[in-house]
Design a protein around this nucleic acid. Sequence first.
DNA 1: CTAGAAGCTGGAGCCGACTCCAGGTCAAGC
DNA 2: GCTTGACCTGGAGTCGGCTCCAGCTTCTAG
Lengths: 134, 134
Amino acid sequence: MSMRQACEATGLSADTLRYYEKIGLLTRVPRSAGGARRYDRRTLEQIRFIQRAKAMRFTLEEIRDLLRFRESPQTSREEVRALARRKQALIREQIEQMAHLEKELQLLLNLCTRSNCGCPILEGLDNKGGGYGS
Amino acid sequence: MSMRQACEATGLSADTLRYYEKIGLLTRVPRSAGGARRYDRRTLEQIRFIQRAKAMRFTLEEIRDLLRFRESPQTSREEVRALARRKQALIREQIEQMAHLEKELQLLLNLCTRSNCGCPILEGLDNKGGGYGS
DNA sequence: CTAGAAGCTGGAGCCGACTCCAGGTCAAGC
DNA sequence: GCTTGACCTGGAGTCGGCTCCAGCTTCTAG
């Protein structure tokens, strides 16, 4: 499978595929006699794996680790599990924080439809007691 | 109030404060005869405003707009409201997506405690049907 | 055999939000 | 007068994840 076909098959750009290879995400990508990449089933599966892991908010660095673990699954179950748990905890934390902000914004917007002098949103950002940290 | 004191009062670094000024977030920061910044009440309020808006996930560019709106509140209520609504929608969307991922991860982790051959997380990333988009 | 498309490489540029640095200025204390 | 420390400026570097580019080579169709 040519570069072009791989791009069509995955929806990624040639630059992205070459970038993934450059940073060591894709390993052992076969070449034609002239040096062009020939994507085989193995590499395509790696690419799909990367795309799914990205959708799960793993960073490229984490995905590189996951792909390594994938090469020797029996020795690495615990590590994979730990990575997944860390990611889950992070996501939970972010959800919680964002749910809080969403409520806050809703509150300001509600005020906004009622008040008819001043702007409660700007005032909310002016006055709020403590702040949430960064 | 000196730079040092402003840093202590806000928890921001001198570089960050100078950066905020450079990109036009902080305007009309007064100077001493020698050219040193003298943070007054007005500027400090701007800084607090920025910190709260950042906590609400507004970007620095959006905050710059909010600060401008803040200068002429009566003419800009609708714009502020629109900005807040867009931000809220974005946050909701992200919460939804992350809640989905969180569930997905939980599922894989549950499988993981049960199965005793192979790694369900890696396999989950291998096999999943569609993918979630980017 | 040749034109044009597709691919290659190494390296630079982009985004947002800083962070760091060199080299210069200024104010206060000894 | 000299050191020390806070501050100044403009500009470069950082991070992650690409994206774009110039200047080649290789492949494919006519």
